[in-house]
Amino acid sequence: MAKVWKYLRRHWMLYAMLIPGLAYIIIFKYIPMYGLSIAFKDYEGIGDIANAQWVGWENFTKLFSKAAFIRSFKNTVIISFAKILFGFPAPIILALFIDSLRKKGLKKLVQTSVILPNFISWVVIYGLMYAILGPSSGVISEILTFFGFEGKIPDLLSSKEYFREVIVGSYIWKSAGIGTIVYLAALTGIDPQLYEAAAIDGAGPWRKTWHISLAGLRTTIIVMLIFRVGEMMHAGFDHIYAISNNAVISVADIIDTYIYRVGLEQGNFSLATAAGFIQSIIGLVMVLITNYVAKKVDPDSGIM
């Protein structure tokens, strides 16, 4: 008991600091959480959620009995996995590249330009994608025609074979830049003397990057990865909604776009909440696994 008292007397300020953040989390995040019960209820959006009738797992069985939901589930996993596999390393590589630039002006220019795509809405980006990739009047086809190419280039925007590549590619293009900010900030924390010491030992630029920069970014990378897998089941509603069409929807329809159709458009709150619940649970499992693996590899990392 005395020990606890001593600990508290020494560190009470730390706990006092936590009060606003925790109060916020409890009031604005945990109190509304009773809304999750909608997933297990028949709620039509009128009146008290508490009064709505419990239906058990009915909303979930209903979802999984729908072929379109299963399809969207599969697409979500595939698209998300590809986005993580190819998209997650992109900002790290980009940040290391920007970091390696010596000329200050050039560095600043690159550093600023890469974040810009993040601020342009998907609808406008799609317009530009069409202006570039469009098979009949796009920039690429015009260039090819100029060089004497005859015939039609494949329409990437309307073919099932390439559409997932289009999704992942455009995703990387839009988000990699903004993702560099955290890594660039983390790189500022690395002691420059480490690089000098390595140079004296005769390390080349690649070894310096690998042993010093990447090692210094390790914990940041892990935290970012954990957050990324947590939202794995959200594969980008705005993105898919803006760039997909009915010719490719069978490979692009994700849970969020599916729920938009059946949930919002038809006022089906219970189904939408149940789908959200599934997404959250899977996210939680993925986070716990990633966190566990991270801690096995490096006890100091992870978020919990």
């Binding site: 069409y130 469009g134 098979p135």
Partner: peptide, 8 residues
């Protein structure tokens, strides 16, 4: 319209 699938 030749690109009727993908044209915005």
């Amino acid at each position: 319209e030749p690109d009727f699938v993908s044209v915005p």
